[in-house]
């Protein structure tokens, strides 16, 4: 079982992208983690069918 990237992560400083609830980013900042909050919006204007289609197309 390949888990090399996980063991590499254990040796690194955690650097986080937060997609969604903003409070999770605030908490991380509070403990000194470098974090970037995204301004996430539902894809395809929130239309689930088109969104899943785009996802399958790799977009």
């Amino acid at each position: 079982m390949n888990v090399k990237p996980i063991n590499e992560l254990f040796k690194k400083e955690l650097v986080v992208i937060n997609m969604g609830l903003e409070s999770f980013a605030d908490n991380l900042k509070d403990v000194g983690v470098k974090v970037l909050q995204m301004n996430w919006k539902p894809p395809a204007g929130g239309n689930k069918k088109i969104s899943s289609l785009l996802s399958r197309l790799g977009r």
């Binding site: 992560l9 690194k12 955690l14 650097v15 986080v16 992208i17 937060n18 997609m19 969604g20 609830l21 999770f24 980013a25 470098k34 970037l36 909050q37 995204m38 301004n39 996430w40 919006k41 539902p42 894809p43 689930k48 969104s51 899943s52 785009l54 996802s55």
Partner: peptide, 30 residues
């Protein structure tokens, strides 16, 4: 605040973990 993950990674190239809490219906693709 970037809208896409590609842009976010461009801005924070040393990022190693993504915390995802968007609505479940859209989470898998992210």
């Amino acid at each position: 605040r970037p809208v896409s993950l590609d842009k976010a990674v461009e801005m924070l190239p040393d990022a190693n973990l993504v915390v995802i809490s968007v609505p479940g219906a859209f989470a898998a693709r992210e």
